[in-house]
């Protein structure tokens, strides 16, 4: 069984540094298993979040050798055995302790997104949607809210524009609602004024770290930026509303 040297961040908002742990691993182990092993045997109070351990809940986000990833989906055998492996909390959010950060910013932004406003049903009282019309939105619904895209976004990470910027997670949330066949609201103005989509300069970092492989930039953000340009033409906007047409996804 290979033994790894793990350099895990220990500390809180005031102070902290990396501490080394030596851990024996077994076949198939992921970084989260190693963290749990350290917890059970060497540092009972090592703080980390996790739930499903299967890449479905998005709780165990961390920066592993500097890369934002889910600990539960990072196999040890994909990391080099010789060199120490660093595990750090996601940097963009205030640290609570060890690997746990305060991600409440995301929950605050979630509340600001205008919810679905339902159109009336078909005459028989049912709602019909064609699969091809919802494929793209189902892609956005795959989001597990790991907030890795938020962590890596320059606007939040480097420029700390949290107040005026909702971040990629919420751009695809807005996109999903705007493209929803049963929704009647227009969020273009919201995306520009409240969510700050104009601040995004499409570096695609968010897309690169998404563990669900959602095409955040290409399928979510860019079409929304284009729509925003279109929607500034009030006649186009009115016509679209009048005919009940929805903007075409790219």
């Amino acid at each position: 069984m290979p033994t790894y040297t793990m350099r895990v961040f220990r500390g809180d908002a005031r102070r902290g540094d990396f501490r080394e742990y030596h851990v024996e691993t077994a076949e198939g182990m992921v970084v989260l298993d190693v963290i749990h092993r350290i917890q059970a045997t060497q540092a009972h109070d090592l703080a980390c979040r996790w739930n499903c351990k299967a890449g479905k809940c998005g709780s165990c986000s961390a920066e592993i050798n500097g890369k934002p990833r889910l600990m539960c989906m990072t196999r040890m055998d994909t990391l080099a055995e010789g060199a120490p492996i660093t595990v750090a909390p996601i940097r963009t959010f205030p640290l609570i302790r060890d690997l746990v950060t305060d991600v409440s910013y995301n929950y605050e932004k979630a509340k600001t997104v205008p919810p679905l406003r339902l159109k009336p049903p078909d005459p028989d009282g049912r709602y019909r949607m064609m699969q091809e019309d919802i494929d793209r939105i189902q892609e956005f619904h795959k989001c597990i809210e790991c907030f890795l895209c938020q962590d890596v976004c320059h606007v939040i990470r480097d420029h700390d524009l949290k107040r005026q910027f909702a971040g990629p997670r919420f751009f695809i949330k807005i996109a999903a609602l705007d493209m929803h066949p049963l929704d009647t609201r227009n969020r273009t103005e919201f995306a520009a004024r409240e969510a700050g989509i104009g601040l995004c300069n499409i570096t695609t970092c968010c897309t690169e770290v998404c563990p669900e492989g959602i095409h955040i930039t290409d399928n979510g953000i860019i079409p929304m930026k284009e729509r925003r340009a279109d929607d500034y033409d009030p006649i186009v906007w009115l016509l679209r509303k009048f005919r009940g047409q929805r903007p075409e996804p790219a």
């Binding site: 809180d12 917890q39 009972h44 109070d45 090592l46 703080a47 980390c48 609570i96 302790r97 060890d98 746990v100």
Partner: peptide, 14 residues
């Protein structure tokens, strides 16, 4: 017996 303090301490929680 648990080590550490009360801030996000999984040992205590367990």
């Amino acid at each position: 017996r648990v080590e550490g303090g009360r801030t996000y301490n999984p040992g205590w929680h367990t």
